[in-house]
Design a protein around this nucleic acid. Structure first.
Length: 187
DNA sequence: TTTGAGCCGTGAT
DNA sequence: ATCACGGCTCAAA
């Protein structure tokens, strides 16, 4: 089971979106999504030992469809990335990362947060009769699938944007989170 | 607006 | 069992 990877550049986010996946029983399983500055892309690729294909050379129908959907989203279209990927038969295996019931349930609740909406860390916890807002933040921090699992929609209760750590430092992470929220505010 | 103390699930020890 | 660690909160100053 070899890991494949491809990336596309998003002018909207000013980031490269790197998708890692592998194929098992003719089913695509997503391994991770990373948002990387162009300047850091070569380092990221070498550090993770990625065999990255250039997008235009990829024949795989799954990849073509993934890119189509991602581009729709990046253009500001109201698309549910998780559902659309699932409908393609692409498996987003978050249970490998999130092993506990609590973490998995939080992700399930997060997936119910609609496009363009936000929710606070504490509200998300409250859905599970918990007050563990900090623990929720720690779960978001580990999200291997930014954009697809929309952790950018989880903000602070006082309406501040909160942090967004996706292999980025805090400042650029928060800016990127803000961009994503703005992107989803289209009419 | 800025601190500081409380908060809670996780993973490591 | 315990501990330290945070994408957090609340309230006091």
């Amino acid at each position: 089971m070899r890991t494949h990877a491809f990336y596309l550049y998003s002018p909207e986010l000013e980031k490269n979106i790197v998708i890692q996946y592998f194929v098992k029983n003719s089913c695509v399983i997503l391994k991770g999504v990373s948002l990387i500055d162009s300047i850091n892309l070569p380092k990221f690729i070498s550090e993770n030992d990625l065999n990255v294909k250039k997008l235009e050379n990829i024949e795989n129908e799954y990849v073509v469809n993934m890119v189509k959907i991602l581009n729709l989203y990046l253009e500001g279209k109201q698309v549910n990335l998780y559902d659309r990927f699932m409908n393609l038969g692409i498996n987003i295996d978050y249970k490998t990362t999130f092993k506990t019931d609590f973490a998995q349930s939080i992700i399930n609740e997060l997936l119910k947060v609609d496009y363009g909406k936000t929710i606070s860390y504490s509200e998300l916890a409250f859905k599970l009769n918990s007050k563990a807002s900090r623990a929720v933040g720690n779960i978001m921090r580990k999200n291997p699938f930014p954009l697809i699992i929309p952790c950018h929609r989880v903000i602070k209760k006082n309406r501040e944007i909160g942090k967004f750590t996706v292999s980025l430092n805090d400042i650029s992470g928060t800016n990127l989170k803000r961009k994503l929220i703005e992107l989803e505010k289209n009419e």
